[in-house]
Design a protein around this nucleic acid. Structure first.
Lengths: 154, 154
DNA sequence: ACTCATATAGGAATATCTCCTAAATATTCG
DNA sequence: CGAATATTTAGGAGATATTCCTATATGAGT
């Protein structure tokens, strides 16, 4: 699995050790891409394959992975820090569409915000290097359900 | 002070009571607009004027104010939930510019994101009703300092 | 003022996450 | 391979932010 080799390589490059704990945590995050797992959930999943692992190690490893820009922590305001994989090696250029009805989280298109960031540089003299963007509203599915309910009500 | 009367009116409208605790919490948030106070800081400030207040009451009141859409909680990932006043009575249409160098938080222009939200409706079939947007980067001041340091280095 | 539902204080409880330390382990070098 | 060494880990204690619990207090309507 080349993604693991790459992980090993980046670790060594930065002088970190390649331990089985780190490997397992990384694997779980990779295998559950798109799930937005939180630390607890990752801990539970890792324990299935590596029962001896400690909570602190999971937290440490997640922090390390984030520092290495392999993963990315998002706060969906549910009390947990949730993680996802960084896809491109540049910046975390994407955003989330969070449905207020069903709670689903969809990842949005990249690059929508580029022009805005230029405008911010012009207007506010602020050089944007990254962003965390969450749009709240209603997903396609829930919109349709709500429309139908409205019709039956009238 | 008409803002307090308005507060009283909205409380009654929703069947909530106008207590001095709620009044003091609300006042502190209003008086420190732009400061992005967290719950602890609000608690401390309220205690100066109303020493008997309890922590739980402050949390409850902040949750109530947020539910009433009078204030708005933001997570700057420093471990605290921070609050600011909702200015327009519609949506929280603004964003934050967070400097990675000095940690300053500036509030950005409204309405920058309107066109993007239209595009999201078209492309993703997702109806946006609100957003939480944080841009990370470097503020004017820090950019200048960094430029200067670069020059002296070469 | 009386009534009653709601709100509060205060502390205990919970939950997430971090710190601490002795033991374990990855990596390097001979 | 095996020894040396610095890093990493497990496990639990600790820290911190927030919520829950309950008897008491208080606002609002009559």
């Amino acid at each position: 699995m080349s993604v693991l080799k790459e992980f090993n390589r980046v670790l060594k490059e930065k002088g970190y050790k390649f331990t089985s704990q780190r490997q397992h945590v990384f694997e779980v995050v990779v295998e559950n891409d798109g799930e937005h797992l939180n630390s607890q959930e990752i801990y539970e999943l890792v324990r299935k394959k590596y029962p001896e692992i400690g909570v602190a190690t999971v937290y440490r490893t997640l922090a390390l992975l984030e520092e290495m820009k392999l993963i990315y922590g998002v706060d969906f305001e549910d009390g947990f820090r949730r993680y996802e994989i960084v896809k491109d090696d540049k910046e975390h250029r994407h955003h989330h569409l969070i449905c207020l009805e069903c709670g689903s989280i969809k990842e949005g298109e990249n690059d929508l915000l580029g022009t805005i960031e230029e405008e911010i540089l012009r207007k506010d003299k602020f050089k944007v290097t990254n962003h965390k963007v969450k749009f709240y509203g209603y997903c396609d599915k829930c919109l349709k359900i709500m429309e139908k309910n409205n019709k039956t009500h009238t």
